[in-house]
C-alpha cells in the first residue's frame, strides 16, 4: 500500500497544483499578518478562507485528480493489487497532500509570528474539513463516469453545505422562533461539517461574547469534554462515512 501511495503522491506533487495551493495559503496568511496585528482578527479572517476555500479546493482538486488518475487506477487494477488498497491509497495520498499544503500554508506563518490556542483549533478544523470534503469528492467521483458530472456533484456538495443548508437552518429558526431551539440547532449543526467547524472556531475566539445566550449554551457544550468528543467524533464520521460508501461503490464498479 505504501508503494502505491508513494506513486500517487509523487504524481500529485508533479502537477504543481498543491504547490500553488500551499503558496496561495502562505501568501494570504502572510498578507493578513501584514494588514492586521490583532491575532484574533487574523484567525477570524483565516476562518473565512478555511470555511470557503478549503472545502472548495478539496472537492475540485480531488475530482479532477481522480479522473486524471483513471489510467493509473486501471493500470493498477490489472496488477495483483486489491481494489480496496488502490482506492484507499488514492484517498490517503490526496487527503494527506491537501492537508500538508494547508498545514504548511497556514501553520508556517503562525509558527514564525507566534501561535495561540485558537490557531491549533484552526489547523485541526481545517484538516478535518479537508478530510471530509476529499471524502465527499471521492464519493461523487465514483457515482458517475463523467468527469464534468462528478465535478458538478462535488460542487453541489460544497454549495449545499456552505449555503443551502444554512438557508434551511435559518428557515427552521424562523419558523419555530417561539420555541427553545438550542438543542435542535445543535443537532442540525452536527449534520453540516462546515457549520460545525465554524461554530467550534467561533467559540474559540473571544468574539463568541457577541453570540449571547445561544453562544453561551454552545460554549458550555463544546467547551466540555463531551462536546469536544462529540464534535471531533461527528467530523470524523463525516470523513469516514462518505469514503466508506465510495469504497463500496468502487468495489463493484466496472472500469
Amino acid at each position: 500500500m505504501t508503494r502505491v501511495i508513494r506513486y500517487i503522491f509523487n504524481d500529485i506533487l508533479r502537477t504543481r497544483f498543491i504547490l500553488f495551493y500551499t503558496g496561495f495559503l502562505l501568501l494570504s496568511t502572510f498578507a493578513l499578518f501584514q494588514l492586521d496585528s490583532d491575532f484574533g482578527k487574523i484567525v477570524l479572517s483565516l476562518l473565512n478562507i478555511v470555511l470557503m476555500v478549503v472545502p472548495l479546493v478539496s472537492v475540485i482538486f480531488t475530482t479532477i485528480h481522480f479522473f486524471s488518475s483513471y489510467e493509473f487506477i486501471e493500470l493498477m487494477l490489472a496488477q495483483p493489487i486489491n481494489r480496496r488498497v488502490i482506492f484507499l491509497s488514492e484517498y490517503l495520498a490526496v487527503a494527506s497532500s491537501l492537508c500538508m499544503a494547508y498545514l504548511i500554508g497556514v501553520g508556517v506563518p503562525f509558527i514564525m509570528f507566534g501561535a495561540g490556542e485558537s490557531v491549533i483549533s484552526l489547523l485541526v478544523t481545517g484538516v478535518f474539513l479537508t478530510l471530509v470534503f476529499v471524502s465527499l469528492a471521492f464519493l461523487s467521483s465514483v457515482l458517475t463516469r463523467d468527469k464534468s458530472k462528478a465535478i458538478g456533484i462535488a460542487l453541489l456538495f460544497w454549495f449545499y453545505f456552505s449555503l443551502i443548508y444554512d438557508g434551511f437552518v435559518l428557515w427552521i429558526i424562523y419558523s419555530f422562533s417561539d420555541y427553545p431551539l438550542e438543542k435542535v440547532t445543535l443537532t442540525l449543526i452536527a449534520f453540516n461539517p462546515v457549520d460545525l467547524a465554524r461554530i467550534i472556531m467561533l467559540l474559540q475566539l473571544d468574539i463568541s461574547a457577541l453570540m449571547g445566550y445561544t453562544g453561551a449554551f454552545y460554549k458550555n457544550f463544546f467547551g466540555s469534554n463531551m462536546g469536544i468528543l462529540f464534535s471531533s467524533g461527528i467530523l470524523f464520521l463525516w470523513a469516514i462515512i462518505p469514503i466508506y460508501i465510495a469504497l463500496r461503490i468502487f468495489n463493484k464498479k466496472d472500469l
Partner: peptide, 20 residues
Amino acid sequence: MIVERMPTAVLLWRSFLVFL
C-alpha cells in the same frame, strides 16, 4: 436585525449565507 428578532440565528454568524 434577524439576530435581534431570533437570537438563535446567531449560529449562522460568519457563514456564507449571512454574507450574501
